[in-house]
């Protein structure tokens, strides 16, 4: 079973090679005429005001952290789902308790406005 992964590895290597060939073709055949106006970052035709990389709103960080929490929860679902039929009712109730605890956190985040505007 484990050497199925080598098949996937072959696929990855081949895909990377194909992508690099594509970019290589573009670099090879495309014209290269550098001009000042072309190298400016694009902002609807005007010269951009201010530096290119600015600070980002903190909401994105919040979303990322919440995603991690709930993604771990989903990952815990996966093995439970596989052996669910063997576990029976006990497994269901156990999982329900787990979810209920996480739901408390979810509702807290909702009420606190962590899920707003983004």
């Amino acid at each position: 079973m484990l050497f199925e992964y080598i098949a996937i590895a072959t696929l990855i290597v081949l895909a990377v090679i194909v992508a690099l060939i594509a970019i290589g073709l573009g670099e090879l055949f495309g014209p290269k005429k550098k001009m000042e106006e072309k190298s400016m970052p694009y902002e609807s035709g005007m010269t951009p005001y201010g530096p290119g990389t600015r600070r980002m709103p903190v909401r994105f960080y919040l979303i990322a952290v919440l995603f991690i929490l709930f993604d771990i929860e989903v990952v815990f679902f996966l093995p439970w789902a596989i052996v669910f039929r063997q576990l029976g009712l006990f497994g269901l109730i156990e999982m329900a308790v787990f979810i209920a605890i996480l739901l408390v956190g979810y509702i807290y985040a909702w009420k606190k406005g962590a899920l707003e505007w983004e």
């Binding site: 609807s44 600015r54 600070r55």
Partner: peptide, 21 residues
Amino acid sequence: KTDHILVNMGPQHPSTHGVFR
């Protein structure tokens, strides 16, 4: 204190109904 960014919409923009900025 939060930062504000200044953004130009247009003149070359697909949705400003012409050259409007």
